[in-house]
Write a protein that binds this DNA or RNA. Sequence first.
DNA 1: ATGGTTGTGCAACAA
Length: 258
Amino acid sequence: MRIASWNVNSIRARLPVVMKWLQESHVDVLAMQETKTMDETFPVAEFRALGYEVVMSGQKTYNGVAIASRAPFSNVVKGWNGKDLSRVLAADVNGVTVINGYLPHGGERGDEAFEHKLQFFRDFRAYLDRTYERSHCLLLVGDFNVAREPRDVWDPDQLQDAIGYMQEERDSLDQLYGWGFVDLFRRFHPDQVQYTWWDYRMNMFKRNMGMRIDYAWGSEVLAGMTVDCMVDVEPRRWEKPSDHTPVVTTVATHQLES
DNA sequence: ATGGTTGTGCAACAA
């Protein structure tokens, strides 16, 4: 089973690009973030035409998450503790609990949103602590809006005070990671410098000045079943791209069957 | 250089 995560930056603006990529990649599951539309206006029919069923949890203009799957899924949970309905969406597919997260951007130091971002990471870690056993087959994917390590940004010295790489943000990300996750891209590509997001401005993509802020993190059990995790840069090169590109995880789910 | 680009939705804000 292949599970992708992609911040599409508006599903309606991105529909041609997303449809093209789905037809080429044939992933089984696509977890999307920043869909930026209400559930009533989500383009469900286009996904169904390609054989995907969709569950979405969105709002007008901002945020929004969705999961499209060709495999049957169950136990859909919108939000966590009944809040952040447009940021967190979970579903079980082939024995894997997929949690799709769009974690807060946070803005600059001093912004109210910045403190909220740090608090979100703390609270979300606590939520995972009380909700899932460490032995659970769990895959947390999404746009976490923080880079983990110096090699995950184009210039760690210059970006010390940049959104997504400030020390407080990285500490918060580490705290969430400390639940017991494995960074699956890093496991399979220990030395690769690879970003998942490039600012639209200043030709940042052409200059490959980006950050790795989109992840697939697995529990130990899930990591043991994972055979690959890669970043597909191609759709970032296409016409009218998202500023993010997909992260694709391949899980050997046959180990769960029988 | 406090810039630049994209999306939503039609001014201003978020990313």
